[in-house]
Amino acid sequence: MPDTMTLGSIRAPSGAVVLGCGGHLDEWADFGEPLSSRARRAAGTGGAHLKDGLAEAIAVPVGTGPLTVTATTRPGAYALAEAIAVLEVALGLPWSAVSEQPDSVLLGELPVDTGGMIIGDPIALDSWVGTVSPSATVDGLADVLVRGDGSEQAQAEFGSQPIPAFRAGGPHGWLDLPVDAAYEQAATVNRWAVVQGHYKYLAKVELHTHHHLGQRAGWPHALGAGTIEVAGCPVLAVHWDPAELQRFDGGQSHPVSLENVAGSAVLRWTLPLASATSAAS
């Protein structure tokens, strides 16, 4: 039976909230107008789908209080773990404040982004440091993750620490190192790996971008969801298990709607039980 799980609580003091594709979240300003300007304009009309290049999001109006994000789950397509079937954001507004229609309003569709999905205030998200800025770090720190064939031997050799992960067999390594120290540690492990006949990039440096910190915050969560602070606002990041990504066809998008739930406005993203490819197989 489907279960409902809380993913986190966020705030959106600008009066708008964005459900956006994480992989290109820091590209909006490159196209001539920041995400916050587009999102607040869309929220002023009751909500809309935004797309520019590969950057894509839905923006809607919200109330001033905390916004709870929940997910209805289903069994994973390729793993025993639960997966997201429906993602919802309680908008903290009466239905009459967002729509004159009595029933649901389709706002558009969003793909399942391999870079995860981000939910937060658009003004805060103007400061997002993600995959487009891979050399940037928000706090001068980085993590070193060690995984793959030879990782157990490396752990015994270098004393790296297990790192909680929402997937079984997660990595080990070192967290919160100064960037220079992180690169030095990774280089030491990788030189040893080559001598031992293991993969030459056994250790990988992950700079503290918002993208990585959002992913890291979700490691312990069953659905890969974690909250981080961006420009003073709590922002929710949801990252997918790689096995779960296999069930979505590239480029396939799924409906996002405004729903009237007992007189309150709710943003709802509905994912299919299975993709056409996996259903056919």
Score class of each variant (00 low, 15 high):
M1Y: 12
D3E: 14
T6D: 15
S9G: 10
S14V: 00
L25D: 05
A29Y: 03
A29T: 11
D30Y: 00
D30L: 09
G32Y: 05
E33R: 09
L35Q: 05
S37R: 11
A39R: 03
R41A: 12
A42W: 03
T45D: 14
T45P: 08
T45R: 13
T45F: 11
K51N: 13
K51Y: 11
A59L: 07
P66M: 12
V69Q: 05
R74F: 00
L80R: 14
L91Q: 02
L93I: 10
S96Y: 01
D103K: 07
G108M: 06
D113S: 15
G116A: 08
M117K: 06
I118G: 05
I118C: 04
D121F: 05
I123D: 13
P134R: 08
S135C: 11
S135R: 11
G140C: 10
L145I: 13
G148F: 12
G148N: 15
Q153H: 14
F158N: 01
G159T: 04
P171F: 09
D180K: 11
A182W: 03
N190L: 02
Q196I: 07
H198A: 10
E206P: 02
L207S: 02
H210Q: 01
H211K: 04
L223T: 04
G224T: 09
T227Q: 02
G232D: 09
P234N: 02
A243N: 00
P255M: 07
P255Y: 08
L258E: 00
G263N: 12
G263R: 11
P272M: 03
S278H: 13
A280D: 13
